[in-house]
Design a protein around this nucleic acid. Structure first.
Lengths: 189, 189
DNA sequence: CGTCAACCGGACTGCTGGTCCGGATGACGT
DNA sequence: ACGTCATCCGGACCAGCAGTCCGGTTGACG
């Protein structure tokens, strides 16, 4: 494969501007307040630029989500236990859910928007596949008698932006994480 | 409250035509193939008619879903055990999941479309609240040590149209239901 | 400094969900 | 049978959306 020519300086600058604009719009108005027209306008670029960089609305939100979760993914793959390899399945799962829960609680609006945009290819998204593979492996290790692939889907299904917003009371921002850890514990027996 | 005047004959006819047209479009193309323009055209009515009857796209899909699940709701409320009241929590839950799973497996496309339309008021939908209340009660009975409200949300979160389509292999249409029953069993201990 | 691929902007398209209102129609009392 | 009127109808209309396209610009590099 030929080495891709380096990204031009203005292109890189625009990419960051677009991502920042998206964050701001997500924070200010609801998730459906983020139209690509608005993002482009706030970022001070043309609409075409947004699409060239990110392909689609879904791609833009995915990129933002990716940015937020890359660190966790690396830690799970290569980091020290209990997040990384080496600890018992139960400990790894609880540590993982703690971190993923924190990300989800802090980005519920972004999650909602992404879910709505990625209509049905959500389950083919590389990021989703990674989380699913990880959980699935842990379940297979802890409960080989159950359908571990399904359980992984089930846990991830709870990471729904709207549900998190609906369930998180003000003043107890980590209730969601605690509950899902409790559930995982029950499932692991 | 004054008794609502009976629905006019043409109105009733149109309502049925619209629902049938929606079914057909859902069956033919994907869930996002169902635009209200198309529904109205296929039903042979004006667009305004669709909105007057159903209020919005979400309302239309909700009405269709309601039609499919009314029977189950009545059986759960007043029917004979194990679906209705009187049986132990575990039996009631498995019977309920069996029936709800069947509905979901047979209407995955409709489910997807409804989820996409009901952006975030999904959790305020009366139908959802009923399912949630039922499951929540059963969990509270069987596992009073856990967060039964959360578990109910978690079970319902798996009833995602896209997930069901993604997980249901051809030739084994009931795999989803079996897996979710297995999961509920594990959760009940 | 010249060259050229990469990049830019924003007008444009096709479609969407939702609104609106003049006109048609079914129900009902007489 | 017929008049009256609330109810209902149709489809033109609107604002806004995701996504495309292309003439003009700009940054990188020899």
């Amino acid at each position: 494969m030929a080495q891709q020519r380096a990204e031009r300086a203005d292109a890189a600058r625009n990419r960051r501007a677009v991502l920042q604009a998206t964050e701001r719009l997500l924070a200010e108005g609801g998730g459906d307040h983020v139209s690509l027209d608005r993002v482009a306008a706030l970022a001070g670029v043309g609409k075409g630029t947004v699409f060239r960089r990110f392909g689609s609305r879904a791609g833009l939100l995915q990129a933002l989500l990716e940015e937020r979760s890359r660190e966790l993914r690396d830690a799970v793959r290569n980091g020290p236990p209990p997040l990384g390899p080496g600890a018992p399945a139960r400990d790894r799962m609880l540590a993982f859910l703690d971190r993923l829960g924190a990300i989800a609680e802090g980005n519920a609006v972004l999650l909602s928007a992404h879910e709505q945009a990625c209509a049905e290819d959500k389950y083919d998204d590389p990021s989703y596949r990674f989380w699913h593979g990880h959980l699935s492996g842990l379940f297979a290790e802890g409960r080989p008698d159950l359908d571990s692939g399904f359980l992984a889907h089930a846990l991830l299904a709870v990471f729904d932006g709207d549900l998190i917003r609906h369930m998180t009371p003000p003043g107890d921002p980590r209730r969601f994480t605690r509950s899902i850890q409790q559930m995982a514990t029950a499932l692991l027996g």
